[in-house]
Simulated scan of single mutants.
Amino acid sequence: MHIRVQTYRDKSGNTRQGKSISLLRYAYDHEKKRSKQIVLGTVDRWATSLPPDIDAILTDAEREEFREWMAERDRQLAEYKQKSHLLHAAEQMGWAAKALAAGVEPVRPERIWEALDVLAKALEKAGYPRPTRARGRPSKSETPTPDDLVASPYDDPMLAAEQAEMDERMATLPSFIPDGQSRMRRSRNVQK
């Protein structure tokens, strides 16, 4: 059995993954002497079980293959979420520090302190111990501010990659402004 995530093109022309998957079976056609695909059905991409009508059609091996596909899908989603949380952890802490500096009162400040302790322990356990500080009082330039922690969209590697891709695609588009009109616009701007 082959499991294919259905795709579509969005308004920008990018290929996106859809909300459903197709379950396909390959069968050999003796008359044509080649294999052909048989669509067994479509299922919601985030389904946790098969619909009864499709489940009745599948063999035990195909059901097991679907279970393995669901497990891999869930593993990849969890990994993506974990990377996203780590990517934005310092930024979220920066926003929280800015809120405290603006005078916003936290609902449960003890919970924030507990979270900081849990994060520090998890970092050390993962092999990222707290960096050692130089002796003496740190200078102001060495101490980060909340603005330093709040990421600029231009510093985010994921957003920078998307922006670079968009710039490349925009550069390949033809100019739809005729030459005469673009000169007229420039001459109007110069006269003003």
Rank of each mutant, 00 (worst) to 15 (best):
R135Q: 15
A90M: 01
A126Y: 07
D148P: 00
G103V: 10
E105R: 15
M93K: 04
K121P: 02
M93T: 11
W95A: 08
K140F: 06
A101G: 10
P129F: 05
S141A: 15
Q76V: 08
Y80Q: 09
D148W: 00
L100K: 10
P138Y: 04
R133C: 02
P109N: 04
A99Y: 12
G127L: 13
D147A: 05
S141W: 04
E91F: 01
K121Y: 08
P131N: 06
R133G: 05
A115E: 11
V150H: 00
G136D: 02
S139L: 04
R135C: 07
R133T: 04
E114K: 10
L123S: 13
G94S: 05
E110I: 05
R111H: 11
R75C: 08
P138H: 03
A89E: 12
A120L: 14
H88W: 10
Q92P: 01
P138K: 01
L86Q: 12
K83N: 08
V150C: 01
G136K: 02
A126L: 09
D147E: 15
A96W: 06
L116H: 09
A97C: 14
A78D: 07
V118F: 12
A96D: 04
A96T: 14
A134Y: 04
E91W: 05
R133Q: 09
A115M: 10
S84Q: 15
E79M: 11
P138W: 06
K81P: 01
P109M: 03
D117I: 07
A126P: 04
M93I: 14
K81G: 03
A122R: 12
G127F: 10
R111D: 13
S141N: 11
A99M: 15
L123E: 13
A96S: 13
V150R: 00
S84E: 14
L87H: 12
V107H: 11
E124N: 10
V107Q: 09
P144H: 01
W113V: 15
P144W: 00
A101T: 07
A99R: 14
A151D: 06
R135K: 14
A89D: 10
